[in-house]
Design a protein around this nucleic acid. Structure first.
Lengths: 186, 186
DNA sequence: CGGCTATTTCAGTAATTACTGAAATAACTG
DNA sequence: CAGTTATTTCAGTAATTACTGAAATAGCCG
């Protein structure tokens, strides 16, 4: 890993750590970091060398990253090896991550909650448990909808939303107008 | 764990799984789930029995949850054991989670990125890496600011924001007015 | 203080997860 | 088709993480 430039190396190490703090493992995080910083697509062999990990480990980790749609596979003319890169736009990446997490974490939980809430609650404690689950279900639905909506925004709207984020409270002062707008259009 | 009512049990198991998909481990997730659904505070002994795990495991897991500020410690009159519960409001919980994750994941990464970006980039590849890091840094700052702002919103504004979430695109149609408002007040 | 109860700590072990090398598969090339 | 190169799979092992029981600590109460 000393073949990496210092700035790259510390970023890669940090990402590895963050990865394992998440569900993702260290190696997967490191591979992603290397690809993200690289100015050209890399093949498995190169990743294996730079991170000093086995070829097979690279193969498995890349499969994992592909399942998250976080890396793109491409070919260079006259070279039949697989080359990998990340999207150029960090917003693209963030949106993909958000969407995948929604699918993997929110959706299954929502399914379970709805299913459980179909059954009648008998005892007092069970009634209370149902209330709690209902609250969680409601919130998760809202968050899930929010996330879906973000996916549909144009790039420029997204950037606007991010930029004005720290003025959200003020934006909410306009809630009356927004409410009117909501009624008018729907 | 068969002492738990079926609805509770499946929720607890699911939460355990989700926990380990996260950085948090299965037991911690299960304990949290039990506490969240319980209609009364529980002590370590009770958690140990219900989940059939050792007393010491409960102790460690509760410490972990306390470090995330996700459980509240309290005492019952005439009983010197520690009792634990979660906040009643799921929004409270979500905000705490958001804030802790910001502190643990975004902040350290931002620190590293800023630090690295202070150094000059020499080679061509290093310049490219710096650009990538700068992009990530910018986005993370915006997200971090967003998260901070959410913490400061009143409960009613938060609920409004959540409810109107799926009308975000329409809300952005008003960007001109928002821009004006931004200038006027700042 | 001495006994009692509750909680924490921690070394050892169990369970899980990550990684490797070797072998199998796949895909091209002459 | 045989040879060559690239990728994947997988059984075995290494490394990490989770969990336990026993011992230590802490705090109360008579």
């Amino acid at each position: 890993m000393n073949n990496l430039e210092p700035a790259v190396q510390s970023f890669v190490l940090h990402f590895g750590e963050m990865g394992s703090r998440w569900g993702i493992n260290r190696t997967v995080g490191q591979i992603y970091a290397v690809l993200y910083l690289s100015d050209e697509p890399l093949n498995a062999e190169q990743l294996s060398e730079r991170l000093e990990i086995s070829r097979s480990n690279v193969s498995m980790s890349l499969k994992e990253l592909q399942s998250w749609r976080l890396v793109q596979l491409q070919h260079l003319p006259g070279d039949r090896r697989d080359y990998f890169s990340t999207p150029n736009d960090i917003l693209d990446i963030a949106l993909t991550l958000l969407e995948e997490r929604r699918k993997r974490e929110l959706d299954p939980t929502l399914t379970l909650l709805r299913q459980t809430l179909m059954e009648p609650a008998t005892s007092k404690t069970e009634k209370h448990a149902h209330e709690r689950m209902q609250d969680m279900c409601d919130l998760m639905e809202q968050v899930s909808d929010w996330a879906s909506d973000l996916q549909r925004l144009s790039r420029s709207d997204l950037e606007l939303l991010l930029k004005f984020g720290n003025k959200v409270p003020r934006l909410l002062e306009m809630k009356d107008k927004i409410a009117v707008l909501g009624k008018k259009k729907r």
